[in-house]
Amino acid sequence: MTRKRPEPMQVVKQRRDAALNALVHGVPYIRFLGIEFDRRGDELTAVLNYSEDLIGNPFLPAIHGGVTAAFLEVTAIITLAWTNLFPLIESGEIDAEEMAEGKLPRLPRTIDFTVDYLRSGLPRDAYARARVSRSGRRYASVHVEAWQDHHAKHFAQATGHFLMPPPIVSNGD
């Protein structure tokens, strides 16, 4: 009974965080909205950092419905991409350092996206998590939920379908 000695924790963390940061920070619109991703193992939580520019109704005030839609869509796309890339990053088929240098894999493309607005978005940070319901060779279906103060009280949810990028060809080694 022999098994490979586990990698040091810092090596694992650095590789995963470098890959995730490259994926997220490579998209100007994600930076514009102020969305960041919190990672625990392979699980992601998207964080929408509140700013006044996100307001849609200044009288209430409430977060713009379009911001909510965009936040959910970004969460769905990044989570879907991450779910597919994670095993390749771990196996070394995708080099996290090359990703950090700008060699980014193609992201899934939205086919359709349906948002349910359950309650108004308050002027403060919001969080979202996506669940990949099905991920096939060409199409994927993703469900995503967003909340603010109470995780059980979602203020919006969405379901979307996505066209997957062509598979990354392994270089055979």
């Binding site: 619109y29 713009h64 379009g66 839609a69 965009a70 869509e73 970004v74 996206f113």
Partner: peptide
Amino acid sequence: IHGGAVSA
């Protein structure tokens, strides 16, 4: 441009 911007 991002789909999210079109959504907004």
